[in-house]
């Protein structure tokens, strides 16, 4: 299959964890079409899952009627996924790097998602745009794209 060197697609999802598997399929399809290999695709999928999980759990706090958007914009070597919500804004700088040993004691996994996103993607940027919050996750295509 010929790779796509330009992608611009978006989808709106209800704020419930049942949509996470659909989000993963959506990102999987476009990351594959853009030419990423299996390992990179699974890393991008996980980072986007974590961003969406944060929106569902924290920005919307279980409001099932709320919606968020996942947009893929890819060109050149840049594959960017933006997750946008209109819920409570988020201050990433207030989330400390997790100490797993400490977290085991307090039985909480909070902060692991952001930590993973930063490990898995080349850049992770948070922005407030009016009433919207955006997290933009970028991964660069490093190897020669598949033919």
């Amino acid at each position: 299959m010929k790779r796509l060197d330009k992608i611009e697609e978006s989808k709106i999802y209800k704020s419930t964890t049942t949509v996470l598997s659909d989000v993963r399929s959506f990102v999987n399809e476009h990351a594959y079409n853009f030419g990423f290999g299996d390992k990179e695709i699974s890393e991008i999928i996980l980072a986007v899952d974590e961003a969406c999980t944060n929106v569902i759990k924290h920005a919307y706090k279980g409001n099932l009627e709320a919606e968020f958007e996942v947009r893929v914009i890819a060109s050149g070597i840049e594959f960017a996924v933006t997750v946008r919500d209109w819920g409570e804004s988020f201050k990433p700088e207030e989330v400390p790097v997790p100490n797993i040993k400490e977290k085991m004691k307090v039985h909480k996994a909070g902060g692991l998602g952001i930590f993973l996103m930063r490990k898995l993607m080349d850049t992770v940027e948070y922005q407030e745009k009016g009433a919207a919050n955006e997290v933009r996750l970028v991964r660069y295509l490093k190897n020669e794209p598949k033919a």
């Binding site: 996470l20 993963r24 699974s42 996980l46 899952d49 974590e50 999980t53 797993i100 977290k103 085991m104 004691k105 039985h107 909480k108 996994a109 692991l112 998602g113 993973l116």
Partner: peptide
Amino acid sequence: NYISSAGLGVFMAYID
């Protein structure tokens, strides 16, 4: 086939 931090969190929640 797949695990996210929500899954990892479960192992942390009970180990202690």
